[in-house]
Nucleic acid binder design. Structure first.
Lengths: 135, 135
DNA sequence: GACAAATGATACCGCGGTGGTATCATTTCT
DNA sequence: AGAAATGATACCACCGCGGTATCATTTGTC
């Protein structure tokens, strides 16, 4: 099981990298070189972050992306929501129509409780926290 | 995201049903009728539980399955391990070879911590707990 | 102005896991 | 004999994830 998809993982790494370079203009070529992440996929990821307002982009020669928000104001869970949708541990329990459980899911309560715990923790984590850790 | 697969979910429901019927002999037809779960899939699930020692089976006319363990001794996490493998929130971080993170995964520590929390909770849940809840 | 290097936008695709179904063999009660 | 059950196994469809490919556009450098 994966709490994070690669999209989210790459987004975190890219933003972390940019933050550590003091918000300089960074191209996917830079990220490819230093982080060894698949370039075309990275591009797509960064374009999403740009549309979501985390980055600005500069086209053309010497172009790239630039971080627009303070690391302390970028929460992991927001990135997860962008790339993975609303975080839930019990999709089948509530969303999908296949399930006939309705109100009879034996584990409804337990799963919900664990989900809340998880969300509580996720909401606390920011890019700034990750920078501190690696210092 | 799903913490539990349908396999696990169905196993829990079936065992719960059997426990509530005081360990009587139950056929997939019974489960189909009362729980409205897809019969052939259910069969496969029950066969696994039988091989794992949770159930015994009786073949032939009026045959079926019978619960072999006390509800308080059946832990949810064991069922999850049977049908889903070892529970982890960071498969990509450790198992898969694609990841070049090695020791550089920015979120390694956080994910691991949340995983431990989750496991701690999961280990406490037994079928007996679920029976109490619905009483 | 030509070219290279970058992003914008979009379409496409392969793989594996999940959630099943189908089939045939065997056992057992009526 | 036949129906009803499990045992064992093979097969399959869908979908999300992770990724590639392509073409258009912008922009600095020579």
């Amino acid at each position: 099981m994966n709490l994070l998809t690669r999209n989210t993982d790459y987004a975190v790494r890219a933003i972390l990298y940019m933050a550590q370079h003091d918000g300089a203009l960074i191209s996917t070529a830079d990220l490819d070189r230093d982080l060894k992440l698949p370039r075309p996929f990275m591009r797509k990821t960064l374009q999403v972050l740009q549309k979501q307002g985390y980055l600005t982009s500069v086209k053309g020669y010497k172009g790239g992306f630039q971080l627009q928000r303070k690391p302390s104001q970028i929460h992991l869970i927001e990135l997860m929501r962008i790339f993975q949708g609303e975080i839930s541990l019990g999709d089948c329990l509530f969303k999908k129509k296949i399930c006939h459980c309705v109100a009879t899911c034996p584990l409804r309560r337990e799963v919900k409780s664990m989900e809340e715990d998880l969300l509580r923790k996720l909401k606390k984590i920011t890019i700034a926290d990750l920078m501190k850790e690696r210092a």
